[in-house]
């Protein structure tokens, strides 16, 4: 899938060409995004809009405030739930997953209980 970037802009130069493109996975699908861009922004560029499913009413939620305040974009990142993806920088090899419900605490050994 192509990444939806603003290629030409009358005022701004985003310097997309100079940025480092890295590979990450979203629900085990491989995707590309710019390193250190917020995870949520990278997902949006890949056409992903649903980031989590709420616990009680199972409604889809996505990007909303982009300043780490609203909890709409919580996802599981490298196994850690409730990560504010709008203010967490993307790194190469990150494993990003849709968070269904509240997220599960894991012990140090990484096993789910």
């Amino acid at each position: 899938m192509s990444i939806k970037l603003i290629k030409d802009h009358p005022i701004l130069d985003f310097g997309h060409e100079e940025k480092k493109m890295v590979t990450f996975t979203f629900d085990n699908k491989e995707m590309k995004g710019f390193e250190d861009d917020p995870i949520a922004a990278a997902l949006h560029a890949n056409g992903i809009q649903v980031y989590r499913i709420t616990p009680k009413t199972e409604r889809p939620r996505g990007f909303f405030c982009a300043i780490g305040k609203c909890s709409s974009c919580f996802m599981i990142v490298d196994g850690v739930p409730n990560v504010r993806t709008c203010v967490t920088p993307l790194k190469a090899g990150m494993k990003v997953e849709t968070q269904k419900g509240r997220g599960v605490l894991k012990s140090e050994e990484g096993e789910e209980r």
Binding site: K4, L5, I6, A41, A45, R61, F64, C65
Partner: peptide, 23 residues
């Protein structure tokens, strides 16, 4: 109003003007 695609104005600006991503 909670559906993905309903975004705050600040969030839209962040996507398009800071990161150059089509909102």
């Amino acid at each position: 109003n909670d559906m993905p695609g309903v975004y705050g104005a600040g969030a839209i600006q962040t996507l398009m003007n800071v990161y150059g991503i089509v909102p």
